[in-house]
């Protein structure tokens, strides 16, 4: 077994573990921290099903962003939807027999790669040229975009320019999942692509990527507007009644 295969295997085990444990830790933290007061941004739904709908519009359509700024919305939405398609497309590399849905979306997922990179570049251009956004930008914000563009670009290279031995790649990942190491091809785009993906998994729970789980816990979006009808009391606040 080559050194690179072992290295990447260890890298992916580590990255996946950090991703899962780190994310679980943060989600647990969000879920167990009380929201002592009713603070939905109103007008807000008065029922739980209404809140589910509001959250769905927020997560699927980026409703608030749409209200705010059409440029950020179009680039941001393009990136996220494309990313979702691309990730779904990649499921085939982790499945012995591929689900029909995953087969169906293969062509969409392939071309979504271009829109993903396009969306990212649009956001990056704004980050550099719009004064207000440049002002609030830290080096990490540029690096995050670079990382995602790097993943997208190296992926597109493999798909459209310099094919890798995808059958071997699939064997490698299926092997990883069964703790049965298989050799990984060693062409540069693949190694770059996989290295960056592992990096993304690792930094996910430590970075602004926490917006993904965070939005579901945002009290201004996930609370029902019924404070007069139901008494809403956090455990630490209930102590003060005694």
């Amino acid at each position: 077994m080559s050194f690179l295969t072992v290295l990447y295997a260890l890298l992916f085990y580590t990255a996946t573990a950090l991703f899962i444990v780190g994310l679980a830790y943060k989600i647990r933290q969000y879920a167990t921290t009380p929201a002592p007061l009713k603070i939905p941004t109103t007008p807000a739904p008065t029922t739980t099903s209404g809140v589910v709908l509001r959250m769905a519009r927020e997560v699927v359509l980026f409703e608030s962003l749409f209200k705010s700024n059409k440029w950020i919305w179009i680039f941001g939405w393009m990136f996220h939807v494309s990313l979702a398609l691309v990730i779904l497309r990649h499921f085939r590399y982790f499945q012995e027999s591929v689900w029909p849905l995953i087969v169906f979306i293969q062509p969409f997922g392939m071309y979504a790669g271009f829109f993903m990179v396009l969306g990212l570049l649009g956001l990056w251009v704004r980050r550099i040229f719009v004064e207000r956004i440049r002002y609030i930008t830290s080096p990490s914000d540029h690096l995050m975009l670079a990382l995602l563009v790097g993943i997208g670009f190296s992926g597109l290279m493999m798909k459209f320019v310099e094919h890798t031995d995808i059958v071997a790649v699939k064997a490698f990942f299926l092997g990883l999942m069964r703790f049965d190491l298989q050799p990984l091809p060693t062409d540069a785009p693949l190694l770059i692509h996989l290295g960056l993906v592992a990096l993304l998994l690792i930094i996910f729970p430590f970075s602004k990527l926490l917006h993904a789980p965070g939005v579901f816990f945002s009290p201004t979006r996930n609370q029902v507007d019924n404070p007069r009808e139901r008494r809403h009391l956090a455990p630490w606040a209930a102590e003060l009644d005694k």
């Binding site: 950020i72 609030i136 602004k208």
Partner: peptide, 8 residues
């Protein structure tokens, strides 16, 4: 945690 500095 959640802010991504989108500028919205």
């Amino acid at each position: 945690d959640a802010c991504v500095k989108c500028g919205s």
